[in-house]
Design a protein around this nucleic acid. Structure first.
Lengths: 162, 162
DNA sequence: CTCTTGCCTGGAGTGCACTCGAAGTCTCTA
DNA sequence: TAGAGACTTCGAGTGCACTCCAGGCAAGAG
């Protein structure tokens, strides 16, 4: 299993969003205070760190969305910093509603080594186009929302006046 | 009890899956060449017009996402231009991955009359915030994609040179 | 040694947003 | 008047992305 890790995701901020139970508050806590000097994390540590459940992390591995995670001699998972980097990328892609199947495809390409650079580039480029278009759509909807909110606001203010 | 995930993810995928005909091309054709001078459309006309299936249109009505659609004396639906307007709005909101339940709530408010203006404004304002945040997230991901695509592009060009 | 905690697996269940099927009715054209 | 095709309802099925459960193993605390 070669080390052909995908390009590193060093841009280390703002993975925080969208977790179910926690972090419904307004302030953004530090996204991932990854303890320095460590390289082996239990599944629950990773769960806490990423906001994914342990179930989901196992499921990711099962469907091929995670590279092989290291194990202890008793079979427990020990995630590396590299694994966390990968999960950060997955989180980003998930935010863009990339289908899991596509992410799995990308993961396969990464596992397959350097010969797939072109294919990976192509996959990401196509997805980037999708994201751009999505942003445009969202902007369009924003206009509609602005318009309607204005109308309701006007009506409310008018009724407050009389 | 299902507010667990704020779910930007799922419906985006299904949205991408459907909508094959429209908006997949590069130019935006006039969104709905609604024939002028008419105000009664069969379900299949509306299906064609909106890109939704007839099944979905009936389902919308069943769950309260459509106002009462007019019927012929034999019980067949005849959609009005007003209905089409409503469906256009629903389509916009759907693009933003607003949960159907929220849209139904909005539809109920609309049905309830003018007394709900404030509530509607509030609902839309909250959703607008969501959309803005989503756009920001997408931008963040776009940066990551740019970064990675650059790396792959560099690698490819380098290997082409030697 | 027992208890608790954390982790393991495979498989079943959940929620959402459709999507389809069956069986029957109605409308339109020839 | 016959046949094609569009429409009706209700209920079941589908695909996705988790989410949970049962049953079991391993290690540390008391």
């Amino acid at each position: 299993m070669t080390v052909t890790q995908s390009a590193p995701v060093t841009s280390g901020a703002s993975t925080a969003g969208r977790r179910p139970a926690t972090a419904r508050g307004c302030h953004n806590p530090p996204p991932h205070p990854r303890p320095t000097g460590r390289d082996r994390y239990t599944i629950s540590e990773v769960a806490e760190h990423t906001g994914l459940s342990a179930h989901t992390l196992r499921w990711y591995e099962r469907i091929g969305l995670m590279p092989h995670v290291d194990r202890t001699h008793t079979g427990q998972r020990r995630f590396s910093n590299r694994d966390l980097d990968w999960l950060d990328l997955v989180a980003k892609l998930r935010l863009t509603a990339m289908p899991v199947a596509d992410m799995v495809r990308y993961a396969e390409l990464v596992r397959a080594g350097e010969s797939t650079f072109a294919a990976r580039e192509q996959l990401l480029t196509a997805h980037r186009e999708d994201v751009r278009q999505r942003i445009a759509e969202l902007r369009g909807t924003l206009d509609v929302l602005d318009y309607k909110i204005d109308i309701y606001g006007d009506a409310r203010r008018a009724s407050e006046r009389c």
